[in-house]
Structures are given as C-alpha cells and as structure tokens.
Amino acid sequence: MNTTGISSWAVDLADVGAIYPFQGLELILLIIALVFWIWWHIVTFRMEFDRQDEKIRKYGNSEHITQAIENDK
C-alpha cells in the first residue's frame, strides 16, 4: 500500500513532482468540497433565521428592547 507514489527517497528530486496522497482523485475531492460549501451556506442561513425568530419570540417585547438599548453605553 502506498498512497503518495513515493515508496523510497532514493530518487533524484528533479524527477519528483506531486507527492500528496491519492493523486488522480482530485475531481472527486473537488465535488465533495463544493457540495459541502453549498450545504454550509444553506444550513447556516437557516440557523441564523431560526435564531433570529427565537430571539424575537423571547426578547422582542418593548421591555427587553428598551433594556438592550439602555444598557448599550
């Protein structure tokens, strides 16, 4: 088993290029990363809106809002 293509350093470094593991799977890695990126935006948007709704429900009355503004000195 060898994931990097280098099994020994008895080589001329001038002949060595990429040495990261699983070369050839870059496209699959990219697709996974792109899906994660898009998923992250969607999920965090939802988290943000849920949190805002919760805050409005819990603290959206004039008493809390006045408290927040008055304490902000």
């Binding site: 805050k55 409005i56 819990k58 603290y59 959206g60 809390h64 809002i65 927040a68 902000d72």
Partner: peptide, 20 residues
C-alpha cells in the same frame, strides 16, 4: 428576504439574547 435582519433584532442588538 435574505439581506437585512428584522427590525426587532436590529434594535435589541445582534448579541442581546445570547448575552442574556
């Protein structure tokens, strides 16, 4: 409807609930 936070949240501050 994604750009701006609700008015109540803007007034109370974005950290208010968490801080409490």
């Amino acid at each position: 409807g994604l750009l701006r936070i609700p008015k109540e949240v803007e007034l109370m501050g974005l950290d208010f609930g968490t801080a409490l």
